[in-house]
Amino acid sequence: MVKKALKSLMLFGLSIFALTGCDVPVLQPQGPVAEKQFHMIIWSSILMLFVLLTVFTLFGFVVFKYRANRANDDDYEPDLEGNTKLEILWTTIPIIIILLLAIPTVITIHDSMKNPSPDKKPITIEVTSAEWKWLFRYPEQGIETVNVVHIPADRPVHFVLTSAGAMNSFWVPSLGGQMYTMPDMKTELWLEADKPGRYDGRAANFNGENFAHMTFTVVAQKQADFDKWADKVKAEAPALTMKEYKKLLKPGLVGKKVYSSYPAELEHASDMDMPGMKGGEASEHGKH
């Protein structure tokens, strides 16, 4: 029942946007994480639509019916002051609505901290935001990219995020919600793309002058294509030297870049344990 209602509502919502011919990534999820969040969006929208319609109807009714210049105002009751039954009613109904919303919320919160597809082997990618670019490091492949991130499709990706400057937030709306990047701290984000494709990513938290241009592309590829790409980068791209790395961290805009390796000094960052991370505490590591 609920499933069916959900489906038809989704179709309705999507068709509105289809009419205007535009992409609405949040409502067109391309992976399991975005899909779960999308379900929560739809479910909360349905409940809230019910609230909205109730209030609008009652409002329209009383404002029209009880206008001062109506023909017959015998029903005017200036001293009406309360009704316990009604008050219990409109406290109970919201409580029920909140319960209907809170329970799936809490369940989904717990799910979203885990691998969305536990039966598949995840790949880890480290993300660093800087002024105004995104750096991606692939500890398993030993390569690094800037402003473009390749991921294997149909495989969960475990992003480990930090910042080399101001705070930022890493957001790929087609694949799922955002997660902040913060200096001296690590956060995690699980995403997965169902199909190969290119997805827009954005910096979501303001970090100064060129914030608007701080976008990146997610390229999801079949595993075999991804491996081929990584091998090619390994073989053909230039190495990322420490000097180049420091240059990258300076404020400014750069294009998309790929590097066949990253400096050994930065290696330890990958096996950093993350004890305080979940509580949002600063980690002792990565101090500079």
Binding site: M40, S44, M48, T105, I109, G177, Q178
Partner: peptide
């Protein structure tokens, strides 16, 4: 009343944490 209710229901939607990750910012 009607206008504030629109802001109120989107407020509740923002409290749905997994969905907020998509609305935030």
């Amino acid at each position: 009343i009607p206008n504030f209710v629109i802001g109120g229901i989107t407020g509740v939607m923002l409290a749905v944490v997994p969905a907020d990750f998509q609305y935030h910012n």
